[in-house]
Design a protein around this nucleic acid. Sequence first.
DNA 1: GGCAACTCGATGACATGTCAACAACACCGG
DNA 2: CCGGTGTTGTTGACATGTCATCGAGTTGCC
Lengths: 157, 157
Amino acid sequence: MDEPRWLDEQQDRAWRGYRRMRRLLDLELARELMQDAGLSEPDYDVLSDLSETPEQRLRLSELADRMLWSRSRLSHHISRMQQRGLVTREECATDGRGSVVVLTPAGRRAVEAAAPGHVAAVRRHLIDRLTPAEVAALGTLSQRVIGHLTGRPEAEG
Amino acid sequence: MDEPRWLDEQQDRAWRGYRRMRRLLDLELARELMQDAGLSEPDYDVLSDLSETPEQRLRLSELADRMLWSRSRLSHHISRMQQRGLVTREECATDGRGSVVVLTPAGRRAVEAAAPGHVAAVRRHLIDRLTPAEVAALGTLSQRVIGHLTGRPEAEG
DNA sequence: GGCAACTCGATGACATGTCAACAACACCGG
DNA sequence: CCGGTGTTGTTGACATGTCATCGAGTTGCC
């Protein structure tokens, strides 16, 4: 085992900063979302993904892949959201094993009520704190890291 | 309620990218850490914070504050790590209510064994994918967001 | 058609995180 | 010194996430 290459001062600052920002942002955004809309972040993400879909419905596995969740986790979470009337399950017409998650009217109202405030919070705590160059850099850098972690399906600079 | 200000294309790219990068990085780093060192990320963070301390010991509340964890969460987690022999609890000499979390020799060996590989993974998946300018930007931007979320104890640019 | 191998989603056991309540103690003003 | 008030850490109940397993259904190959 070679001598480990530790992080230099700039790199350490970036890594620690990233993690602290991450944690603080999470806590604050989750807090506001719950207070203002009665939704957890996972709830919001599910509803948001569903609502961006043409038919307001997605195969369970398709939704799980988009969210980078395990099927098990999504299945449990959907059960809970179903209890609250935000989504329903339907059988899949083309695959007897399959399950389709469908946004209910109540679910749609919930996201629509939550979205403006949530976007505002994202702006207030993150986007509006950044210069346009930083926003661009964050986007670019994220894409590159994502590409690396997913076997770079897109070209890398 | 005014018309909500949605995110423009660049901002949306940054926000979605940030969240996706976050999730993928977490999954991969946690996977490698568990496989190579048998530690979860929370385990590693606790051990790492303790090992950076002069006496390898911290008051429970001090540690919780540094990690941005609730005392309850930390108390539960320390109990589990104590079962595994990574840390111990001692009474606090100066405060009868207090509890001090102490790194055991086994705990110290565990972080020291885990650290090189973990740092290498952080490099491989994040730091080494970034240009020096991006590293600097990430550090700067994080500090500014952190400052905002914590009532800006440091000056803001 | 029929069988082997795989995929889909559900489920239960368990690990982890959250929340409210509590006991023990510290601190402070009188 | 004492009593009210706040802090510290633990606990138990509950919510959430993970993992292994399973039944059902699909797919491909012969």
